[in-house]
């Protein structure tokens, strides 16, 4: 993982991952939906995780942490469990082609955390960009159970 005391700027050639959960997934196409790339309206910033200096196992552990954190909240509120189904990898330049940009946003639990900024406020434009990103991302399903990826409790 990236050294938290020395977080470099995000480069255009870097690969970043966006985690997908069950509702983000279209069972017909077996692909992530555009919903997963729509930014939250308050800050228009999309969370991603940088692959830089991270092993694949570490990327999945971050995904599992996010899944666990959200599932706890969901359970408290009586909602269905949040299920991680995979991640979509894209180059930062893929985002930049749509006028977006990436900045480092290291968090205590994830020094590789970054944000995709520069989203248009117009919803149709957001959806067009999200559709394009969902169509080209390299979708990786969560790998089968392994010592680094223990099964979740159901």
């Amino acid at each position: 993982m990236i050294d938290p005391s020395n977080v470099p700027a995000v480069g255009s050639a870097e690969t970043v991952a966006r985690f997908f959960f069950k509702r983000d997934f279209n069972q017909t196409t077996k692909r992530p939906k555009q919903d997963a790339f729509i930014p939250p309206p308050r800050y228009l910033d999309l969370s991603v995780t940088r692959h830089r200096d991270a092993s694949i196992a570490e990327i999945w552990l971050i995904g599992r942490d996010v899944e666990r954190e959200r599932s706890v909240k969901a359970a408290i509120e009586g909602r269905s469990p949040i299920v991680l189904v995979g991640c979509g990898n894209l180059l930062v330049s893929n985002y930049e082609q749509h006028g977006l940009n990436a900045i480092a946003n290291a968090e205590p639990a994830n020094p590789n955390h970054a944000l995709i900024l520069g989203w248009p406020e117009n919803k149709e434009e957001q959806k067009k960009i999200a559709l394009a990103l969902a169509s080209i991302c390299d979708f990786q399903p969560i790998p089968a159970t392994s010592p680094l990826n223990p099964p979740t409790l159901s």
């Binding site: 196409t29 555009q34 919903d35 729509i38 930014p39 309206p41 959806k127």
Partner: peptide
């Protein structure tokens, strides 16, 4: 599905390159 602004989405798709949301 749903989007973070509180919208509900309906997605029709046959392939990743032929999608309506």
């Amino acid at each position: 599905g749903a989007e973070p602004d509180g919208s509900i989405t309906a997605e029709w798709a046959s392939t990743r390159y032929r999608t309506l949301s």
